[in-house]
């Protein structure tokens, strides 16, 4: 019999600090949030009657519903872009860069920007995308355009460009890990079984990296859904996603409306993660 006891009292004591912390900063606030979203009446107090009015008001507004749809489409776009770019980068790093030194150097080059905060990185895009920004200057110098293109900054394109740069490595990281864990003999075995390189990729490499792809997509999905900072700085006040609506309501002291949107946002994220986990058995990542 094993001397390792899976259910010793010490185990529970070790889990206690983290559990208490999570309870205080995650579980309790979420419960409060959900509670507040059902508050009715005019007074903002714990004595408020519980009602669905706040939700009804949200769903009755076409603009809000369009915003939900817009957020989902925007997130899906980001997932596709970062997924494709991230896979290419991961494949290049693992399969094409032979020297371990170069691989580390390149990986660091990709990772180092993550040492600064999301907000700073988002703001850093402004001088690039603006009317007199680097991109427009370059395009005009090259003669590609006569007048500066205004579509970059304070536009949906600008938001997308900035977010792609922010989140591509999140999509790439798990794929790097999965690609690294594929023994080279598997690809060689497929080749000796008459599979040309693209078929080896489609039938062997890609299916084996799928859990990494899904995890990367979950990371991108969660981050884009909750990213209000990039949208606010790059999009000006012209563009908003669900997360910006939370902020808008909150700043307008409409706490109950903010709670409704926050709850809906969380439900969307939860649904997304559940769908992702249905597609791929995430536990295989460790195998």
């Amino acid at each position: 019999m094993s001397t390792i006891r899976p259910r010793s009292a010490a185990g529970y004591w070790l889990a206690l600090p983290a559990a208490a912390w999570m309870l205080a900063v995650v579980v309790v606030p979420i419960v409060l949030l959900v509670w507040v979203s059902f508050w009715g009446g005019r007074a903002f107090s714990t004595a408020s009657p519980l009602t669905f009015d706040n939700y009804a008001r949200f769903f009755a507004n076409q603009t809000y519903l369009k915003l939900v749809l817009g957020t989902i489409v925007h997130t899906a776009t980001l997932m596709v872009l970062t997924g494709v770019l991230g896979y290419c980068i991961a494949y290049f790093l693992v399969m094409k860069v032979r020297s371990p030194g170069w691989r580390l150097a390149l990986f660091l080059a990709f990772i180092i920007p993550f040492w600064t905060s999301t907000l700073i990185r988002a703001i850093a895009w402004v001088p690039f995308l603006g009317v007199n920004g680097v991109i427009n200057q370059t395009l005009m110098f090259a003669g590609a355009t006569q007048s500066p293109i205004e579509a970059f900054l304070y536009s949906h394109t600008g938001i997308t460009m900035a977010q792609v740069s922010l989140y591509t490595m999140m999509a790439a990281g798990p794929v790097v890990y999965m690609l690294n864990s594929i023994p080279p003999q598997l690809r060689e075995a497929a080749m000796t079984l008459k599979a040309p390189p693209f078929v080896v990729f489609r039938r062997i490499v890609f299916p084996l990296t799928l859990p990494g792809v899904v995890i990367g997509q979950v990371l991108v999905f969660l981050n884009v859904m909750s990213d209000f900072a990039t949208v606010a700085t790059i999009g000006g006040n012209k563009h908003a996603l669900l997360s910006n609506l939370v902020l808008l309501f909150y700043e307008g002291s409409q706490i109950r409306a903010a709670s409704v949107v926050a709850v809906l946002l969380m439900l969307c994220m939860l649904a997304g993660v559940v769908v992702a986990l249905r597609v791929v058995d995430i536990r295989r990542l460790g195998a």
């Binding site: 060689e188 075995a189 079984l193």
Partner: peptide
């Protein structure tokens, strides 16, 4: 390899 009339069995079976 995919154009050669061979097959291969690997040490750890692959």
């Amino acid at each position: 390899p995919w154009k050669r009339d061979i097959a291969m069995m690997f040490q750890d079976f692959a």
